[in-house]
Nucleic acid binder design. Structure first.
Lengths: 236, 236
DNA sequence: CGGGATCCCAAGCGATACTG
DNA sequence: CAGTATCGCTTGGGATCCCG
């Protein structure tokens, strides 16, 4: 007996506990996508094109047992985060921020889905700054992905508006569409620059160009003040 | 050619990028321990008793190539975080917080090392609250582990004071030892309660019992206000 | 002696095929 | 559409061995 905790880390700290539950391959990406709302099996699979279906199936089972996700009874194949799972949001946002700050080329053939972009925007969102602006809607096109980000009084709501977007569950709060709307397209490779406060070329399709600056203040990954990001990755 | 990005996620978002770099098994625990300061190969191995030596070796190489850690030239077998690696601190702290908030038994046979406990205390630390108290030193014994946490004007410094603690590099700031000192022992299973604002039995060895309350205000995982943590993990 | 490298086996992962 | 089943390959685990 005493199965010696097979495949555990043998560690009692919080990091070890968390990694044991969501550290398996693909698990955090599933959580990321579910952070945007309930999704069906096929939605998850479409958002994670390279996940093998058996792995998706395994992870969904494991995450359920860990109390992180649950099935949506009313939707066949539907899954959503539990309250415990939603508490992983700070983890996801911290991972998202570091990922954009880390150097390295984007690598071709990668997809940036609407759910991923929604998390990106939430990670870059500065509520305090945004609270100083009138309600604004930003429609962002990049690669094959299109999302709408509605900013109102320090709150942010992102939704997929792409060609194959699912019908959205009604908005949480029924707000009138903002008067200020900026719609633009930016290259995927330039998104990082845009969110770092840089001014890459972007193609404004609708709205006042002056709103671009508002966007750049509202969504911004702050290079930690006083901390140098550039690290020497060259190794013998 | 075009090696088809073997074993990548095929995702462009920040979460995917981060998980690709530090998502391998054990990697984040290595980063966690290095967050406490530079460590040698044997220190890391001792702090991670269940890691196979080849895996430790592999991870150290990978983390170096990712620019997250580097060798300490002056210390044989020494490793430390790069500035980029130190930027993972928010990630580690977020993981630590979720891990303590998640339900589940501690599981026996697990170790809680000094480096892990240091991260726990940093994750639970409330600088704003602490700033209101006079400088205080807390010496905490739990299980086999003993650390000293010096709190001064909203800053926290944790160091190993266990029987086999390494000789500490000199304190960052040469401060006089605080007048207020609390030394206590708490069972490992009760640590979670203590850091949740509960009042489990603890054995005060030195200092005024009134300082216990100061400790409880200084180190505290906040149950996110208005968010219910308890989730139903029971599954068919 | 500490700091790794090698080996072998088991477990997890990935691709594809298949079923309710 | 929502998964299971199967199979080959890759990775991790554990013990041992080697090197400076």
């Amino acid at each position: 007996m005493a199965a010696r905790a097979p495949r555990g880390f043998g560690q009692a700290g919080g990091v070890a506990r968390t990694v044991e539950r969501v550290g398996e391959r693909w698990a955090l990406l599933i959580v990321r996508d579910l952070l945007a709302g309930a999704r069906r099996y096929s939605d998850l699979k479409a958002g994670l094109p390279r996940i093998p279906t058996n792995i998706l199936s395994d992870r969904l089972k494991e995450l359920q047992q860990a109390g992180i996700i649950r099935r949506v009874p009313t939707v066949r194949g539907g899954y959503e985060l539990t309250p415990l799972g939603r508490q992983l949001e700070p983890v996801i946002l911290a991972l998202e921020r570091w990922g954009w700050a880390a150097p390295g080329e984007p690598a071709e053939g990668e997809v940036l889905t609407a759910d991923a972009l929604a998390v990106t925007l939430r990670a870059a969102f500065r509520g305090e700054v945004a609270a100083g602006f009138p309600p604004t809607e930003y429609v962002i096109h990049t690669g094959e992905t299109s999302v709408s980000a509605v900013v109102d009084a320090g709150t942010l709501d992102v939704m997929d508006v792409g060609p194959d977007a699912l019908p959205q569950p009604q908005r949480r709060v029924a707000i009138p569409p903002p008067a200020d709307v900026l719609e633009f397209r930016v290259e995927r490779e330039r998104l990082s620059e845009l969110l770092s406060g840089d001014t890459p070329p972007l193609d404004v399709e609708t709205g006042d160009r002056g709103l671009v600056d508002r966007f750049r203040r509202t969504f911004r990954f702050d290079a930690a003040p006083g901390e140098d990001v550039t690290a020497d990755a060259s190794v013998a």
